[in-house]
């Protein structure tokens, strides 16, 4: 049990240190964590993203809490789950807090340093590219029901998924006013559509 908690701390410390650019930036790291530790499946990760988006609190923290809980429960019971959620959450904020406390001392110099900004120029790109790759994996899993790009030949074609995806895309990107709505609304509508059309079968 102790070794699980140490591992949990270590894994989330790494996410906190390397995920740059907000909540979604944790997704590629969590995806890799799921693969290498077996704590949660790609499907569970997608559920966690949905829950984190639709509950109060920063997405990155919600994800850490959720993953910590699920991993703890998998190796024990509810108590381990709660301990796991606390450890994962503390772990993901450890590195950022230390870094911010250091930066706060010389705020202006940090913002104007050309090398810091040059690093950020690369980091922003890495962040988007990693999220895009994680997004494609989630699309493959959630819509085509295959585990990775190499299995694309085995993709399941379910028109309900395509239609729902296309509808949400149009509504969230191009319909004025509606596209400003909070994601929780689209998540709720998708859940209702999922139930009405029995989308899990």
């Amino acid at each position: 049990m102790i070794s699980l908690f140490l591992r949990l701390y270590y894994e989330f410390f790494k996410v906190g240190l390397f995920a740059i650019g907000g909540g979604m930036a944790t997704v590629p790291f969590l995806q890799e964590m799921g693969k290498s530790t077996g704590w949660f499946s790609p499907g569970e990760l997608a559920d966690m993203i949905a829950v984190s988006e639709s509950t109060p609190g920063p997405i990155g923290i919600n994800m850490a809490t959720y993953v910590g809980y699920v991993s703890g429960v998998r190796h024990g019971g509810a108590i381990e789950g709660i301990l796991g959620s606390v450890i994962a959450t503390v772990a993901i904020v450890t590195a950022p807090i230390i870094i911010i406390l250091i930066i706060a001392k010389f705020l202006e110099k940090f913002r104007e340093n050309i090398y810091v900004n040059a690093a950020l120029y690369g980091l922003r790109t890495a962040s988007v590219a990693l999220i895009a790759a994680a997004g494609i994996s989630i699309v493959l899993f959630s819509i085509f029901q295959v585990e990775n790009v190499y299995d694309i030949g085995k993709a399941v074609i379910d028109y309900r998924c395509f239609i729902l995806a296309a509808a949400i895309l149009v509504v969230t990107r191009w319909v004025p006013k509606v596209k400003e709505w909070h994601p929780i609304i689209f998540i709720a509508i998708s859940a209702a559509i999922g139930i009405i059309f029995h989308m899990s079968v």
Binding site: M24, I138, V139, F141, A165, P183, S190, I193, G194, F197
Partner: peptide
Amino acid sequence: AVQDALAGIRVCVCILIFNAVVKM
């Protein structure tokens, strides 16, 4: 019903991630 709802939600999550990528 919970599984059906989650199946619908997963499709939505794909689009939310796509939108986040476009924004960033």
